[in-house]
Design a protein around this nucleic acid. Structure first.
Lengths: 104, 104
DNA sequence: ACAATACATCAACATTTATTGATTAGTCAA
DNA sequence: TTGACTAATCAATAAATGTTGATGTATTGT
């Protein structure tokens, strides 16, 4: 894995490293939603959510779409598929354990 | 998903939200290794690595084992499996897109 | 054009996280 | 027991992130 790939992985993980952002993407599992719905669901301030949505968007985990006064956010399948692949490779490697080399 | 689960997910993701820690777990795909090997591989200071190993360990993504003067670290399959499940559920939800509700 | 709505952005500040060098603790071998 | 070696921890500091309230921007209805 290249440095670039590691950087990308770290960026994706970082985007999910906060409870509020995890709550946001969990909410988006129900499908595309506007900011007002998300704000209601999370009982929190608008600028705070806007900040976290931006982090998720910059990591390309979600995308947005304006329709009239509303902006709708939704999950990005591709980034999530990449992330799943990354984690599965780690898990599989953890299965192939062992070796038990020694330092001397 | 409960608040506790979201917290756990955020903790796991946080542990992987740093390039150095991603590099560490990538290295551990090759199997159990002592700190000295990891330090050599990453060309970095010992206390710095110790810090990052602790973050990964507290998230239970890795575990350690002392043998003589050396401490060996290895991946924890269980946490990685949990993480994979979490991400897969997100990805699957992203597939079931749509709805296109409107705010009025 | 004006007011209202939905959302983004900004600046100031608070909190969290990371880095560095020094010290401490555990293990071993002489 | 002394000294060398491996690694963890600590304290000081630096850097990155998150929160809040205020302001700015785009869009709509009147």
């Amino acid at each position: 894995m290249t440095t670039k790939h590691r950087t990308n992985a770290a960026v994706l993980f970082h985007a999910l490293s906060d409870q509020t952002r995890v709550a946001l993407i969990e909410k988006l599992k129900d499908g595309e939603q506007c900011v007002c719905e998300l704000t209601d669901a999370l009982h929190t301030g608008q600028s705070r959510l806007s900040f976290h949505l931006k982090v998720l968007k910059e990591a390309e985990l979600i995308h947005d779409r304006r329709e009239g006064r509303w902006v709708y956010y939704a999950l990005n399948r591709e980034a999530l598929a990449d992330l799943e692949d990354f984690v599965r490779e780690l898990k599989d490697a953890a299965g192939r354990t062992v070796s038990s080399k020694r330092c001397e």
